[in-house]
Design a protein around this nucleic acid. Structure first.
Lengths: 118, 118
DNA sequence: CGTATATGCGTACTTTACTACGCACTGCGA
DNA sequence: TCGCAGTGCGTAGTAAAGTACGCATATACG
């Protein structure tokens, strides 16, 4: 609740950005170029040293294909955690996959989440 | 398309804030006190002279009881093309998967779609 | 009339977001 | 071994967000 600890969610956002960037196989410089930001600033963001502006959030979201609601959640604009994009339904609706492929991926996904779940 | 015209949506946001403030029967100074901002800054915002930070948007939203989605719309965080839910993004953002698991599923997905791509 | 209070805004100043430049480290090929 | 290209980051500076202080007008009340 303290004003100073409000910065704690910045490190959460930073960690999230870093993981998304790595999953997209991008270096900080590449992401910086995509978003038209400087690379040290990307570094600073990932370590939670700054609260990015809306303009920066937009650029990051579109470069990394992160839906707006997810960003809003991390940045605390949405009151509570909202809409998570469900992986399973995304797979089921994917037109680029055959039914057999969908089944295979769903099987793997189930294995991952069941084991970790509890 | 120009970078300069991006400021045009700021006046839209400003006009919206002003109308909401008046509907709530508040002066700029009163709203400033509620949001812990300075009153000239509220004035500047209403005239679209600045792009407010996320922190300011949160304060305004809660003081004027404006839902997050509405703010997001005015601020342009919601992208027009956001509806597209692709599988890869869903996997990357799935909180139930570890980064290693995400990488594994993305690898498989890539294999499926690449081969089909002809 | 005088003055008291409330409103919105101009503007110089401070604080913070963001950039330019460069350093240290890690592979990798000659 | 030697570059040398690519990575992440420290840091001094610039640009933009946000504040303190005060001016101008308006309404109201004695």
């Amino acid at each position: 609740m303290s004003d100073k600890d409000e910065r704690s969610h910045l490190v959460g956002l930073g960690a999230f950005i870093r993981s998304q960037r790595r999953l997209a196989q991008l270096s900080q410089r590449e992401l910086a170029k995509l978003t038209k930001l400087s690379d040290p600033y990307v570094s600073q963001l990932e370590r939670g040293l700054h609260e990015p502006s809306v303009r920066v959030l937009r650029a990051l979201g579109s470069a990394l294909n992160i839906p707006a609601e997810t960003l809003m959640g991390y940045v605390g604009l949405t009151d509570e955690r909202a809409a998570e994009v469900d992986t399973a339904s995304a797979i089921r609706q994917d037109p680029k996959l055959s039914d057999a492929q969908k089944a295979a991926m769903l099987e793997i996904y189930k294995g991952f989440t069941d084991e970790a779940g509890k």
